[in-house]
């Protein structure tokens, strides 16, 4: 079984997670840029974070046989801080980079005027750079937030099939199902969605334009939720092909719209543990043999 996690924050995870993910079948993932748990206070710290997403993190993933791509954007929470707004000015440089397959994650947090502005500006960048957009729905006031999100997407002129609306659940999926946007679901240990509820939605809505992710980050979350959802699908009578559609072909199809998804036609990438990134190795205590 090959798996593609279309939304996971590996910067917050350990090498043990990478090893367990590979063991479970994960061969590719996308790491959206997001809030790191504590507010940032300057543009420069974003730049260093973006550099990690296109540099050190793909290297670390490759050490465990996993292809790493990312999305770049200014998240809504920090869009409210005027000190971070200038991140918008440097986004074009990063959206052009090889491993960047979408703009994101975008959307609303508290639905402020500042968030409106930054959201719209980044959807315009997605159109300009011919990239898909990863849009999340807010944690609070979710139904109203999802409606407003879809309005802004429509007004932006971005093609619906270039947008995934993420963190959906039973009460918000209907709002998105008929829009032509992709539907994203984050499977969490306690909040958002769980595997069984996800299987029920797949039975009801089918597998088309459906994306399942773990959205694992620095909080209580589980990087193996894609694999666990796959198992739950099989147990409920879905075929291997159905699982492959939802957990491989769909994310590949969505992010391939960027023209920059590089899977090299082979999901088993060779692992070279002696490699270094900027002279750093993930091996501790021993320099790789030269």
């Amino acid at each position: 079984m090959r798996l593609f996690d279309p939304h996971i924050h590996m910067t917050s995870r350990t090498t043990d997670d990478y090893a367990a993910m590979h063991q479970a079948g994960v061969r590719a993932l996308v790491e959206p840029s997001f809030w790191v748990g504590q507010p940032r206070t300057s543009v420069e710290t974003f730049v260093d974070y973006f550099d990690g997403l296109v540099g050190w993190e793909p290297f670390r993933a490759a050490q465990y046989g996993i292809r790493h791509h990312c999305t770049i954007g200014l998240n809504p929470k920090e869009a409210n801080d005027p000190r971070c707004r200038e991140v918008l000015d440097i986004l074009p440089r990063y959206l052009a980079k090889d491993g960047v397959v979408a703009v994101g994650e975008l959307g609303y947090d508290a639905m402020t005027a500042e968030e409106d502005e930054v959201f719209a500006a980044q959807l315009a960048l997605a159109v300009e750079h011919e990239l898909p957009a990863l849009v999340h729905t807010p944690h609070r006031d979710k139904i109203a937030g999802t409606r407003r999100t879809l309005d802004v997407v429509r007004e932006s002129g971005i093609a619906a099939e270039h947008v995934v609306v993420d963190h959906l659940n039973e009460v918000t999926v209907d709002l998105v199902a008929d829009t032509g946007c992709w539907m994203g679901f984050s499977i969490y240990p306690d909040t958002k969605m769980d595997e069984e509820r996800m299987v029920t939605l797949l039975q009801e809505y089918g597998t088309e334009r459906m994306l399942v992710n773990s959205a694992a980050d620095w909080g209580k979350s589980d990087p193996l939720k894609t694999a666990k959802t796959a198992q739950a699908m099989l147990k409920a009578g879905f075929t291997d092909d159905d699982v492959d559609t939802v957990l491989w072909h769909n994310p590949v199809a969505f992010y391939a719209q960027s023209g920059k998804l590089d899977l090299d036609g082979d999901t088993d990438i060779p692992v070279d543990r002696s490699a270094t990134f900027a002279g750093n190795s993930i091996l501790r205590g021993a320099r790789p043999e030269s």
């Binding site: 074009p92 440089r93 959206l95 052009a96 980079k97 090889d98």
Partner: peptide, 10 residues
């Protein structure tokens, strides 16, 4: 050049 420079490899 800001958006062209990164694309040179591709």
């Amino acid at each position: 050049i800001g958006a062209l420079f990164p694309a040179a490899g591709r």
